[in-house]
Simulated assay, not measured.
Amino acid sequence: MARPVALVTGAGRRNGIAYAIASDLAADGWDVAFTYWRAYEHRMSLGGDPEADPASLTRELEAAGARALAIEADLADPETPDRIVRAVRDELGPVRALVLAHSESVDSGILDTSVDAFDRHLAVNARAAWLLIRSLAEHVRADGARIVALTSDHVVGNLAYGVSKGALDRVVLAAAGELAARGITANSVNPGPVDTGWMDDATRAALVARQPTGRLGTPHDVARLVRFLVSPDAAWVTGQLITTDGGFSI
């Protein structure tokens, strides 16, 4: 029996959420294509090895029995999303699960966000998501597909990121309503604070102090929910924004 195909965006760092999702999906029996963008990883310096980690992920996926396809892609380019979906379809087969885990995230607030930064956040986090979803819907098979997007409610001091994630949430809601007749479900997942390389010691301590469970989330904590949402058991779940933060939002 052929393995279904998942496309996971933003899996360029070993310590990132997308890397864990891709790895866990391969263990669940999926073939996995993933995107990464080394220029962003180098610009942000969030850990990992942007030069080696995509190749390491490919090896991990193949060791789990999956066919793997790594695609380096700048999602700020509006021509890129359709090229990605077509490349995955041609190499692995039609995409059955689209996990939108990429992001542009540069801290800045009301007074110091530049127009260029604001536009780039919207282009990467919202417009690329819409274009990927549109391309998926245009090529979807009769048995449908799953869409899961990672979102966030962080906006204070992170204006452009927060605004773009709010727009992403609306794109996902539109997809859930408009594409249901094609057998497509669409949901958003808010992971809360997960240490993927962006926390310093003071931030980590402050967040743990607010966490009822006494620890921060891990990438694999988030991956567990994504695994459910792309599974057959989640066929009746769509149009939802699900928080998986160990009670942080309480």
Rank of each mutant, 00 (worst) to 15 (best):
Asp31Met: 10
Thr238Ile: 06
Gln211Met: 13
Gly217Tyr: 12
Leu69Thr: 08
Gly162Trp: 12
Asp195Gln: 12
Pro219Gly: 15
Val155Phe: 13
Ile184Cys: 11
Pro54His: 01
Leu229Phe: 04
Val172Met: 01
Thr238Met: 01
Ile84His: 02
Gly144Pro: 06
Val226Trp: 09
Ile147Val: 14
Ala149Glu: 12
Leu25Met: 07
Thr151Ile: 13
Asp24Pro: 15
Asp169Arg: 15
Glu41Ser: 14
Ala70Asp: 01
Arg59His: 14
Arg38Asn: 06
Val148Leu: 04
Ala129Leu: 00
Glu60Thr: 15
Ser103Val: 10
Gly197Pro: 04
Val99Asn: 03
Asp90Ile: 05
Ala68Leu: 02
Leu159Asp: 01
Leu25Glu: 09
Val163Gly: 02
Val95Lys: 01
Asp74Gln: 01
His121Ala: 14
Ala129Pro: 03
His42Arg: 15
Ala66Asp: 05
Ala149Pro: 08
Val85Gly: 00
Ile242Asn: 04
Gly12Leu: 00
Ala181Thr: 15
Asp31Leu: 10
Asp116Gln: 09
Arg170Phe: 09
Asp116Trp: 02
Arg141Cys: 14
Ser135Cys: 11
Glu62Trp: 11
Ala68Asn: 02
Ala181Ile: 11
Ala27Met: 11
Asp90Met: 08
Val32Glu: 09
Phe228Gly: 00
Thr9Pro: 02
Arg141His: 13
Glu51His: 06
Ala55Leu: 10
Pro4Trp: 10
Gly144His: 09
Gly144Ser: 05
Asp82Glu: 06
Leu69Tyr: 04
Leu132Asp: 15
Leu25Cys: 05
Ser105Trp: 09
Pro4Gln: 08
Tyr161Ile: 07
Ala52Cys: 07
Arg227Ile: 04
Ala63Ser: 10
Asp201Leu: 14
Leu229Met: 09
Ala126Met: 11
Glu51Cys: 02
Arg96Met: 05
Asp53Gly: 09
Gly109Lys: 08
Pro94Gly: 02
Thr203Gln: 15
Val189Ala: 07
Leu57Asp: 05
Arg83Cys: 00
Val106Glu: 05
Ala20Val: 08
Pro191Trp: 06
Ala180Tyr: 13
Asn15Trp: 02
Gly247Lys: 03
